[in-house]
């Protein structure tokens, strides 16, 4: 009963169209469990204990496309040390994401997001957005807009030390 009340109180602002709670470093990462583009489950809760880099992107977002090779390289280099990149596409449908996947060999899971998921993450109101989540499930850093080359990798390296 108490847990139902807690869920209701958490969801009430979203149901009423109120402003989503803005996430900041130190916030717990919201729950996210969806199937990736190959139908495999991706659950952020199951990734606790890893350093997680969440990339909100879309096929129509030029600076997001620039990020993809960097993310693939980071997953390759730092994956064995505990990094897991998760892509969340904010495209309106799956086909453009599949088209991008033909060009880039993603070595990390990509799920399709939507407005509801964006609101649960504090509002993804522009791209790209990247969030680095520590092994304890708390957000370490958030980048929005065009990201300086090397900035994310530097933070990943520091968090893996």
């Amino acid at each position: 009963m108490r847990s139902r009340l807690a869920i209701l109180l958490t969801c009430l602002p979203l149901l009423m169209g109120a402003a989503p709670v803005k996430l900041a470093p130190g916030s717990s990462v919201p729950a996210m469990s969806r199937a990736d583009m190959h139908g495999r489950p991706v659950d952020l809760a199951a990734l606790q204990g890893k350093l997680v880099l969440i990339d909100f992107w879309a096929s129509w977002c030029p600076p997001c496309i620039v990020e993809i090779p960097r993310l693939i390289a980071m997953q390759k280099t730092y994956g064995p040390r505990g990094l897991q990149v998760v892509g969340i596409s904010m495209d309106d449908s799956a086909q453009p994401v599949r088209d991008v996947a033909k060009r880039f060999a993603f070595n990390y899971p990509v799920v399709l997001g939507d407005a509801k998921l964006g609101s649960e993450f504090g509002g993804v109101l522009g791209l790209p957005v990247q969030m680095l989540v520590g092994r304890d499930g708390r957000i370490l850093k958030i980048w929005t807009g065009e990201i300086a080359p090397g900035a994310v990798e530097q933070a990943v390296k520091a968090a893996l030390r």
């Binding site: 402003a19 509002g123 993804v124 109101l125 522009g126 929005t144 807009g145």
Partner: peptide, 16 residues
């Protein structure tokens, strides 16, 4: 930068 940074976070009116 984007709608979140330059409109929503600046406190201008928003509908959802």
């Amino acid at each position: 930068t984007n709608f979140g940074e330059d409109w929503v976070n600046k406190g201008y009116p928003v509908a959802r």
